[in-house]
Amino acid sequence: MRFSRIIIFLLIAGTVAGIGYWRHIHPDVISVTVTYVEKGDVEATVANTRAGTIKACRRAKMSPSLGGQISELPFPEGAAVKRNDILLQLWNEDLRAEVVHAESALRAAEDNSQAICLQAANARRTADRSYKLYQSEHVSRQEYDRVKSEADARHAECKAARANMEVAKAALQIAQSRLQRTILYAPFDGVIANINGELNEYVTPSPPGIQTPPVIDLIEPDCFYLSAPIDEVDAPRVKPGMAARITLDAWRGRIFPGEVTRIGSYVIDREKQARTVEVELKFTNPEDIKSLLVGYSADVDIIIKTHSNVLRIPSEAMLDEEHVLVFNPDNQTLEERSITKGIANWNYTEVISGLAEGEALVTSLGDEGVEAGAVAEITDRNSDD
């Protein structure tokens, strides 16, 4: 019985050893995809941290500065308007009446001022004649003083009348200003994007500290720019005038050339978000503007610098910051290789040393069994044109 157990144990051990030896001399072959080291251009870029937004160069979100009932909405949403066109008017008959009253009061004050000042001028001439008569002793000093005092009084009345005329002008300006507050004018040529109100509805201005939706949203239709946040760490490398590539979700596969026009002057600190700096970019191709709408989401790659005709590999082929897996065609194995890299972006990494043009790099790094020393066969080649 004991001898039989020994025989069974030896058979099992021999089988395991045989399987191990077989695997040693016939290791499992894994399938890998590769790419090849090539020469080309590599760009160092800065990308936005969150989606950017297409904005109009000029946009006015307007509401009346006082409450009232909407009496006129001359244009519908989507209408093109010219500068100084009336976009909205509140009921203002009472204020118009106040303007008419103030205009009448001003005319009356002007007429009264003219009459009083004419009388003052005549009294001044009489005083001058009386003075000459006094000097020639044809009138008494008492008579001359009376005439002079009357002329001085008339002059003071003229000054008071002119002051009253200025008061009437100011009252008219106040009435006109109050009337103007009931009317919204287009500050520039544009398109009405949104109207938040209907005829005869009552609108009220926003209370202090509380923002309410604007009644009229006016945008400039022929000028757009991109506003996008970048990480505060990248901000010092970005300068106005740098070229950029802009992509939009609404236009997948299309690249819009752009240029940095402005870099934010402060860091935006939002709760539970990375600190960022806002950058603005213009579209350098005027034809691209025709395809845009305000509010589109967009991404951007700002080109910091470019190295041309250098060795490069897809960035996805990097194991870490310094290593790659190279496929050795002589023994069909994978070898870990240290490299020195230069500038890099999401697509390509520049290789300064450690690789030669044409060498095969493994890109299927996440597959099971893909590691240094593994025996492999190439099943596909990544296309990196």
Rank of each mutant, 00 (worst) to 15 (best):
R107M: 12
A243S: 13
R252K: 13
T284M: 03
L184Q: 00
H323P: 07
P329L: 04
T204K: 14
V167R: 12
P314I: 02
N309Y: 09
D234C: 03
S265V: 08
P214Q: 12
Y225H: 09
T284N: 04
K148M: 13
E321L: 09
N84F: 14
L325G: 03
K148F: 13
T126R: 13
V375P: 00
K290R: 11
I303Q: 02
A153R: 10
Y296P: 02
K148I: 08
R275H: 15
L87E: 01
A171S: 11
I378H: 01
L218V: 09
R270F: 13
A156W: 12
T204I: 08
E278L: 15
D85E: 07
G258Y: 00
S265A: 15
L11N: 05
L184E: 02
K272I: 05
A274N: 10
L319Y: 00
A56V: 04
R162L: 15
V81I: 10
V294M: 02
E232F: 01
S291I: 08
V147H: 09
R254S: 03
G342D: 03
L226H: 06
Q176F: 10
P27C: 01
G354V: 00
E150V: 14
D269F: 13
M1H: 12
E110I: 14
I255Q: 04
D330P: 09
I255L: 05
Y21H: 09
V81H: 02
N112P: 04
E335F: 05
R270H: 14
W346A: 13
V279L: 06
E232L: 03
V260D: 01
T33Y: 08
K282F: 01
R254I: 05
L355M: 04
K39V: 06
I352C: 12
M318E: 10
Q173G: 09
A161M: 11
I30Q: 00
G342I: 00
R5M: 11
I255G: 02
F283D: 01
V362A: 00
R124N: 15
S104V: 14
E38H: 13
L106A: 03
L73S: 05
Y36Q: 15
P207A: 11
L218A: 10
A60Q: 07
E336C: 01
A360Q: 05
N309K: 14
Y134K: 15
P76V: 02
D28S: 11
T15H: 10
A243D: 14
E371W: 07
A356K: 15
Y266N: 13
T49R: 08
Q273S: 15
V29H: 07
L133F: 10
D384G: 10
I210Q: 11
I6V: 11
S291R: 10
A317R: 00
E93M: 14
K341N: 05
F3R: 14
A175T: 07
E259T: 08
A171T: 06
Y144T: 09
A17L: 14
T349P: 03
E157D: 15
D222P: 08
A235G: 06
V34N: 01
I268Y: 10
G342Y: 05
L73R: 08
N345M: 04
